[in-house]
Design a binder for these strands. Sequence first.
DNA 1: CGATGAAATGAGTGACCGATTACTAACCAC
DNA 2: GTGGTTAGTAATCGGTCACTCATTTCATCG
Lengths: 193, 193
Amino acid sequence: MTAEDRREQVIDAAIGVFARRGFEGATTAEIASKVGVSQPYLFRLFPSKKDLFLAASERNMDDTLGLMRSAAGGKTGHEAMHVMAEAYQEMLESNRDWLLMMLQSFAACHDEDVQRQTRKCLQQLWREVESLTGLPVVDRMLFFAKGFLCNVMAAATPAGVGDSVREEIVAAMKEDSGMECGPEAGPEEMLAD
Amino acid sequence: MTAEDRREQVIDAAIGVFARRGFEGATTAEIASKVGVSQPYLFRLFPSKKDLFLAASERNMDDTLGLMRSAAGGKTGHEAMHVMAEAYQEMLESNRDWLLMMLQSFAACHDEDVQRQTRKCLQQLWREVESLTGLPVVDRMLFFAKGFLCNVMAAATPAGVGDSVREEIVAAMKEDSGMECGPEAGPEEMLAD
DNA sequence: CGATGAAATGAGTGACCGATTACTAACCAC
DNA sequence: GTGGTTAGTAATCGGTCACTCATTTCATCG
């Protein structure tokens, strides 16, 4: 197996470990054992633990980018945004590592390198949604706002936990998507259940 | 000085350290030295590092609750929501520890105890905004959504960093607040600037 | 076959960290 | 002043972790 293939495997495993334990809590030994290689070998593949974290964080954000692209398919406008929102919600429920890794990236923004990379990835995501949907800036702003609200809800109230407040908020999202007031608003739902 | 006073001081210092280094990255020695007590004494005041983290996280959320209350004053409705949003944004820019501690609490939600407490605090905040503003659920949902979007923007793009995407989003928030379409919408701004 | 280079590892090291223990000093009621 | 309580510390221990280095395995190729 080439070193490049190994690097990909390591990044995959690192996302899972960093997501659940944070940058300092994660150990290189655990990551290595998940991949099935020795711990010292990680340091041949990545110069330092922090470099590995940055790689994992970037990959996680790129996955989000890919999610949006593949969800949109050939669609545009509100239709594209609708399916992207659905795909995002599905991902939130099915891939907790991905969610937690994203939150770890945000929380680690005290570090300047993490902050710079996170900013860069968010800019890419913003531009991608712009070009995929072609929708006005306000619509995209609300799309991201609701997305981040969903992040926090999913983190604090994962599937299976009964919570009246969560249900209230989810219902509000449905309601909101049904009564859009923009000029081109249709019956599409945004971030519906 | 009473143990209770000390505990408060320790929580204050702990918020700063946990915010910047995360749960595992923070050391009890650094927290203790910030307060000016010995490190072992922390373990008389709190049974474990995790208990200290939970206390710090809860205090941080309670501060948010207090921020909302004092900002609203006697106001209600959209007026109350407007001043709350302004106070929130001001806090985001002036108190980075508070922001990062909140993000650390979210990111640490893999831990069940953290998750349960974070959920509880968010529920309190939701109910408080409900009773303070009396506004419909959709308005409150959008208020929280925009708030969490502001969190991420403030984390990844702190004041002083020029970023065209941030400016775009900020402008969109202004625009959105000026063209509300609800029955009681007025010229009030939401999360303006 | 033998060489070559990349993949991978075993054995370690120094530093650090959370938690414990055993202790001191000040204070307070009687 | 003595018995009891409370704030606080010095010393340290068991354990862990990121990172290093010397070495080994192994496929490829002349």
